[in-house]
Simulated scan of single mutants.
Amino acid sequence: MKTLKNIFLTILTIGMLQSCIVSEKPNIDFFQNSKYDFKGVQFASINVPMALAKSYIKKALREEGESEETVNLVKKASKIKVLTVTNGSQEMLNDYTQYLNDNHYEEWATIKHDGDNVNIRVKQDGDAIKNMLITVGSNSKDMVFVDVKGNFTPDDISKMINSVSVK
């Protein structure tokens, strides 16, 4: 019985850690399902296992001096996907923005931070926000896309945006 339990725990651990592996295939819908020609573009994607990562993310945010609003937002997240793009283009970013508009994502904020533009869009159903997309881009061809799923309120998002904007 103990051997069976150890095998089960080993398989469960491998399964949870499997999602930590970086992939060269995009993990965000627009990039996965698009007929867009991505010639020359390089992707690196990470699916963050929230069960393992929440405590580490919260600790790192506190050490970096982030606000409690941002830390509380992490508590409400159920899934985070990160996609980095190298050799992207403004045209690709414009097409991504059009895709978000077509899929009913509302733009909540665009923040300039250290030369980068940070764009926050949400998909809202009444007072419930189940999905938040964060795009970080600069004048270079490198971009980061973060897809956060969870159970947020408009107040949660507004507090997080205000805490970042004030810095």
Results as ranks from 00 to 15, higher is better:
K2L: 13
N6S: 10
F8N: 08
L9H: 07
L9A: 02
L9N: 13
I11Q: 06
I11L: 14
I11S: 08
T13W: 00
G15H: 03
G15R: 04
L17A: 09
Q18T: 12
S19D: 13
S19A: 06
C20G: 07
V22E: 09
N27F: 01
I28A: 05
F30Y: 13
N33M: 07
N33G: 08
N33I: 03
D37P: 07
D37V: 11
K39F: 09
K39T: 14
Q42I: 07
A44D: 10
I46H: 12
N47T: 12
V48I: 15
A51P: 10
L52W: 04
A53W: 05
Y56T: 14
K58I: 14
K59W: 02
K59G: 07
K59D: 15
A60F: 07
L61S: 03
R62L: 12
E63V: 05
S67I: 04
T70C: 03
N72E: 13
L73F: 15
K76C: 06
I80Y: 02
L83Q: 15
N87D: 15
N87S: 11
G88A: 02
G88D: 05
G88K: 03
S89M: 07
E91F: 00
M92Q: 12
M92Y: 07
L93P: 04
L93Q: 10
N94L: 09
D95I: 00
T97G: 08
L100P: 05
N101S: 11
D102C: 00
N103V: 01
H104C: 02
I111L: 13
K112G: 08
D114N: 13
D114L: 09
G115P: 11
D116I: 00
N117P: 01
V118C: 01
N119S: 12
I120H: 00
I120P: 02
R121M: 13
D127E: 15
A128G: 03
K130S: 15
M132T: 15
I134F: 03
T135L: 11
G137M: 03
G137A: 12
V144P: 04
V144G: 01
F145H: 06
V146F: 06
V148S: 11
K149Q: 15
N151K: 12
F152D: 12
F152I: 09
T153A: 06
P154D: 04
P154Y: 01
D156P: 10
I157K: 03
K159C: 01
V164H: 03
K167Y: 07
K167T: 09
